[in-house]
Simulated scan of single mutants.
Amino acid sequence: MESLSSSSSFSTTIKPHPLLPRAKNVRFSCSMKAASAFSYQKFIQFALDETKHSTSDLIPSSLQEDFNTLKAMDGKTELNMCSFQAPKIRLLRSLSIEASDCMQVLDFAVFPEAEYDLPIFCANFFTSVNTNIVVLDLNPLHDAIDETHYKEKYYKNLIPLGLKYAELLPWGGKLTSESLKFFSPIVIWTKFSSSQEKHDILLSAFTEYYKAWLSLMDQTKEETDVTQISLNREAQHRYLAWRSQKDPGYHLLKRLIGETRAKDVVNRFLFNGVNELGNKSFLDYFPEYEREDGSINEKRSIIGKSFKNRPWDTRGVFIGDTFS
């Protein structure tokens, strides 16, 4: 989740997802609020429908037992979560919040199994009455700036799609150079005032990007080399270590459900695997963030370099300098 603010209350009706059979002792339903003129529930429903069409083996994740609906400390606001898995998908999960003051949040991601070097599908959206903050991307598992082979394998044919939405949803302003290491040449990072037209464009972008990710999933082959599988696992763990430590949405969660619960949602649900896929710590991966006392520097950027404009050209070539 990107920069977020607090919310008011709302009510929801909990219904099982219509595509999946009911399983004994397994909670698999997504909490769905009747879709208003604009609702992120439409995004979630689309993604689940499309995923089910792509793989008949989509099943509820065991996380659904512990993470489904949480009521905020105000006794009114609810956080709705759902999670699934499939042969190539280690975890598909969604967290959504809808409030009576029109504040909405969607944090939706799909993480591949380590046997596949697929990008990580990432949609982090925040909407208030006047403001929308959006990150939508196929986050590269490996370096998409310098590793030409990986970039061409997954992004070369998607550059036209990225350019289409780069024009419709312009660059949202300064972005830290550290964050760029986890974004692809087709990332959508944007801010805009709420309007039906912009919301329709965002829904269109989400559907096209998700279809593109599913197409990549369908085409990718299982890796059998143990060394490469290990590299994939470590790359995903590194990503999870960064996101779980630096995700700005944590501050909203802490306000809504308290620090202990917020940490649990971040580490066990949103970035599940950070405690299981590897043993390295955040500072093992990012030692530059270590303070003299051994604690982690909480700054968003310690390099100080940020990008006001999109740092990729129309061919998807990175034209920025991440370290100056």
Rank of each mutant, 00 (worst) to 15 (best):
S39Y: 02
D49F: 01
D49E: 15
K52N: 09
S54Q: 12
T55D: 15
D57S: 12
L58H: 06
I59L: 05
P60V: 02
P60K: 01
S62F: 04
F67Q: 08
N68V: 00
T69F: 03
A72I: 06
G75L: 05
T77Q: 12
E78R: 12
L79C: 07
L79N: 08
N80A: 07
C82F: 01
S83L: 03
F84V: 07
Q85L: 09
R90F: 05
A99T: 07
D101V: 04
D101K: 03
Q104P: 03
D107I: 03
F108P: 06
F108G: 03
A109N: 14
V110S: 11
F111K: 02
P112G: 07
P112E: 08
E115D: 14
N124T: 09
N124V: 03
T127A: 14
I133M: 09
I133G: 10
V134H: 04
V135D: 07
V135S: 13
L136F: 02
D137H: 09
L138F: 10
N139M: 13
N139L: 08
H142N: 10
D143A: 10
E152N: 15
E152I: 00
L158H: 10
P160Y: 13
P160E: 12
K164A: 11
K164H: 13
E167H: 11
L168P: 01
S177K: 06
